[in-house]
Amino acid sequence: MKKVIEAENLVKKFGDFTAVDNITFQVNEGEIFGFLGANGAGKTTAMRMLCGLSKPTSGEGRVAGYDIGKEAEKVKANIGYMSQKFSLYNDLKVWENIRLFGGIYGMGSDEIKEKTDELLKRLNFENEKNTMVKSLPLGWKQKLAFSVSIFHNPKIVFLDEPTGGVDPATRRQFWELIYEATDRGITVFVTTHYMDEAEYCDRVSIMVDGRIDALESPMKLRETYDAKNMDEVFYQLARTAKRNGG
């Protein structure tokens, strides 16, 4: 199977502190990859390296076929990103937000126009085209933010705790969008604190103290750790952590 993310012995140090300690893993094309870990385990740092935002201290990584150290620009052009913090502009209308991000990723205005209508139709947002984003409910915003992050058809989309603060029903709907995206061939790399969401992933990695201590499908993980659910698996691993969360 084609690998879209390959990390090999990635290390990131800040002074004496080793935030990411020699991690190696691959992500297959079209899969949903859950990237778990307690606060302070090094998830965000690892993700920033994969997105080309920060250079690894040592080790190598390829994302969408490009080297994360040397070809950060090309990596950026081929990925989408959505963070837990809100990533749309509140004082822009729905369609203006879409147009902006389309424009930033270098899409032509005709293409943007066409795809905007298509997108709004799919989300049942047609009536909200001219609404200011700030007056949308949070769940809608998150859905819209996700749709915008894959608007330019990236190979991979990175989701950093995308469903923080959203109610369970909306989270379900959000995951339906994620499945739709994988149907279109987009690989999803997602971090989350909700263990029920971890169950939705094809494979899950769990980071402890900067290392990846487990990497398997949720089912296999449950077997290995003799646990009823992912919650227990996570707890057993996170318990071994020596770093404080933060």
């Binding site: 935002l53 950026k76 052009a77 990103y81 963070s83 913090k85 930033i104 270098g106």
Partner: peptide
């Protein structure tokens, strides 16, 4: 502060 900077930095801009 809004967190949108992060999104912009990840973009090819």
């Amino acid at each position: 502060e809004m967190g949108t900077m992060e999104v912009l930095l990840v973009s090819p801009m």
